[in-house]
Design a protein around this nucleic acid. Structure first.
Lengths: 239, 239
DNA sequence: GCAAAAGTGTTACTTTTACACCCATGC
DNA sequence: GCATGGGTGTAAAAGTAACACTTTTGC
């Protein structure tokens, strides 16, 4: 187990599953059409090799910026994939990240960087290169699980949004229609107290909705008091 | 972004956070004393370089077996750490795993493989090499979070256990004392229906407790019906 | 005035919490 | 017979699910 000589080392990449959402639309994923072998012509996740002395998340953000020109968005490490045969060129280990972009506030011109790129609805995906199908599924599972207990959904909405838009987002991500009773969704989300009312809609051909903004300060305070509460009155779990 | 020449590649390791537990004791972590530089004399997580054509999880299991002689235990990928300066020898990316071992059924002779090794209670850790403190904290956070919603705790108990032992395990992992009312812990866990009664204790100087076994088949059926139920009646969440 | 979406009140039911006491065994 | 941990019943409170109707706006 000595320090391995250079030629035995695997190559290391990062790949990004970029989820995009616009109010009222489906949840989408950004894919790049590969121009070169292997898998020329197939669609693939944006990604590339990690540079020397480059932190992993920085590499993911760099790739993201090169592909989408988007900055300052939510990015989180997903999982590391390293089957010996996942790349026909040789051993390549990839650290996968996922990112969330609101497509109205960050109008992503897919197709920068001289590559064909396109947004695909998550339920109409093409055949993908490498093990990218697997990576994408893992990202979707993570997103669907995490949106239930962490406020990451707000990353996909504009800063100000209506409760109906928030509900539609939940339905788009979870892939269900009218899953939650409007009345109960509203009471529930408002009872949490993490939304701040910031105004009302204008120029809509119906009763204008109230606009809300996610208040991350209140959320973080809540998290603390919640964990104290858990310790005070016992553990709660639901395996 | 061409395929990178060999000499620019980082080295890739796996590190394992091995949690050990014996009924009635504290939660412990297995550490190895480093004999060589860098960090000679410091304690570190067991781990080592990924071999050519070796899947990542296989590498983790191999290291685990080399260090503890333990096989067939729960192992799960945790996170990948890759700060450029985390190893003074050069760029080393590590894929961290965590493992759960019951110390009664797998009496791990820490200190195989001609290395000093020891179990440390999670709240009495020594100074660690590299960024292993960070990795260990991440593992502990993951374990504490995951035990609330997935049945991984049973990996730390003997096959057959009493409800009090299960409760003590929860308290040991979460680092709290008498956190949950005995009455309510019992109703709750039994109401889930994933425990199968398999006998009663013998030769104890008090009323013998019932022994239970975790029934993973029932658990998996439950998971399916649960996700259908969620979709039927709406989303439930608690950000 | 009508179409379109926003917004609300209440009831029956389920779940959770917080109690304190009795039970079976070994020594 | 007593020390030790095992095991339960229940009432009050809180939370959730399932309803259908009223409100406000633009055109």
């Amino acid at each position: 187990m000595s320090f391995p000589s250079e030629y035995t080392r695997p190559a290391v990449t990062v790949d990004c599953v970029v989820f995009g959402y616009a109010v009222g639309k489906q949840l989408k994923v950004l894919l790049i059409e590969r121009l070169n072998e292997p898998y020329a012509g197939r669609w693939a996740l944006p990604g590339g090799f990690v540079e020397e002395n480059e932190p992993l998340e920085t590499a993911a953000l760099r790739e993201l910026k090169e592909e989408t020109r988007v900055q300052n968005i939510f990015v989180e490490q997903l999982y590391t994939f390293g089957s010996p045969n996942r790349d026909p060129r040789g051993r390549v280990i990839t650290i996968a990240y996922y990112a969330l972009v609101n497509l109205e506030e960050h109008p992503v011109h897919a197709g920068t960087d001289a590559k064909h790129a396109r947004w695909f609805p998550v339920d109409e995906l093409p055949l993908l290169a490498f093990d990218h199908q697997l990576i994408l599924e893992a990202a979707l599972n993570r997103l669907r699980a995490k949106i239930r207990y962490q406020p990451i959904g707000f990353e996909l909405l504009p800063e100000e949004f209506t409760l109906t838009q928030l509900q539609e987002l939940y339905e788009a991500i979870l892939g269900v229609r009218q899953a939650l009773n409007k009345r109960n969704f509203r009471s529930r989300i408002l009872k949490m107290g993490v939304l701040k009312e910031v105004g009302i809609q204008e120029h809509v051909a119906h009763r204008p909705a109230r606009l809300y903004r996610f208040d991350s300060e209140i959320y973080h305070e809540m998290q603390e008091s919640k964990s104290k509460e858990l310790i005070r009155r016992g553990i709660d779990f639901e395996i």
